[in-house]
Design a protein around this nucleic acid. Sequence first.
DNA 1: CTAAAACTCCGTACCGTGTACGAAGTTACG
DNA 2: CGTAACTTCGTACACGGTACGGAGTTTTAG
Lengths: 248, 248
Amino acid sequence: MSPAEYSGLGDPERSIALLWGKAGAPTRGPKQRLTVERVVATAIEIADADGLDGLSMRKVAERLGVGTMSLYTYVPAKAELVDLMLDRATGEVRRPEAGMGWRERLELFAREHWQLYHRHPWMLQVTGHRPVLGPNELRAYDDALGALALAGLDERDMVGFVDLVEGYVRGKARNSIDSAQAERRTGVSDDQWWTARQFFWDKHFERADHPNLTRVLDAGAFSEQGGAFEFGLARTLDGIERFLADRD
Amino acid sequence: MSPAEYSGLGDPERSIALLWGKAGAPTRGPKQRLTVERVVATAIEIADADGLDGLSMRKVAERLGVGTMSLYTYVPAKAELVDLMLDRATGEVRRPEAGMGWRERLELFAREHWQLYHRHPWMLQVTGHRPVLGPNELRAYDDALGALALAGLDERDMVGFVDLVEGYVRGKARNSIDSAQAERRTGVSDDQWWTARQFFWDKHFERADHPNLTRVLDAGAFSEQGGAFEFGLARTLDGIERFLADRD
DNA sequence: CTAAAACTCCGTACCGTGTACGAAGTTACG
DNA sequence: CGTAACTTCGTACACGGTACGGAGTTTTAG
């Protein structure tokens, strides 16, 4: 078999088999000392602590007590490892229960993912990637679609609204997580950072040129954003509700 | 002066002076052959074409015909260069005109940023960063706040709704851009990618386990997402409108 | 007028990254 | 029992950001 289907990319069959845990155990050769599962779990631990930047194949190998290149017998490349990490983490979300209405289901979806991203901030650092066709990702997506099917929407709008809610949650989570990630990366806390920039507001910022920002700053509105996630979520779902109402 | 305020981080005064173009020209020494402006513009060109991953100090230097380390006389580090790139690109957005209502203003904000992110996809690849306190970023933010001030909201809700709309736009833009970025990085086009995974849907995917996804796939709903941005934007703004109405 | 100070430019070097390659050892099958 | 298939992993390469310090250039202080 050629080493890669396209430029440097792994075999799709292999990737999907890994995601679905359907990789046939090889018969020949020495028994494997590790499992894909352990590799993925370890990688998640490291990424949880050090972020996606802090995740390196060498670190994973070191923590597992194996040589770096040994990991490549479990996983074709780092990109596939990240896909596995994403799908595995997504498996942590709670699923809707029978009897829940569409709004309740979407709220559950949103809150579960909100928490998920806080537990695993690196999930939002993966950029420019295609959908992960893993069991947990598809499950979660199917559940979310199901909520909107319950609302009686057609297929196009189901997809549209799932995207809307998903996008909302990811966006908010990113905001909420960014400063913590910056702190980890730079070693500068939020307080230190803002304090070091206080001189800007005092000496350089043109208040008259930014009347709205000035007003918001003076009111201390940025420290009042505690319940913003729930607030925005309610507004987003209200938008859907209004769409449903107007339709009739 | 110590080389850095915190671990590896540059002097905030210097960073802000750069953003606002207030870096005092040095008197001693040879005249500079470049300007910060040219460095930033060149970096944006490269990032537009090759993504944030494809942006390296060496490439910028090469294109400008200077040694790599010479860039460090213009910019303290790559992180600051990216901040400058972000603020400069944000300067491209059109601003609201007098007489526009709050909804019109938010639509303009959303559409302008939607297009901005498509012109400069790398903007959405910057993760875990703190706000950029540059002139264009603050200007755009002030304008967005102004739209909601016009709607008669209090400060806390102004911030909340700007975040909401901003998050929506960024989320949608990310989806829209991700596949293009994946193509650039891996050399595999969307068609190729999905074709290479067709076997999954045919042979492995359990339709009965994913009734909603099955329904949506069969209906071809994913190819009907053309106007999804405007659709979701309208729903998001409807949510705000309903909030305003309920308030009275 | 001279010397020092301040500055630009940049070659070299260091450490960290993903991973290709191939040697060495292990197991199962024909 | 040989050989094919497999795991393990040391070495090496290309690429990344950037610290350091030397060489050359301009201004300024004395």
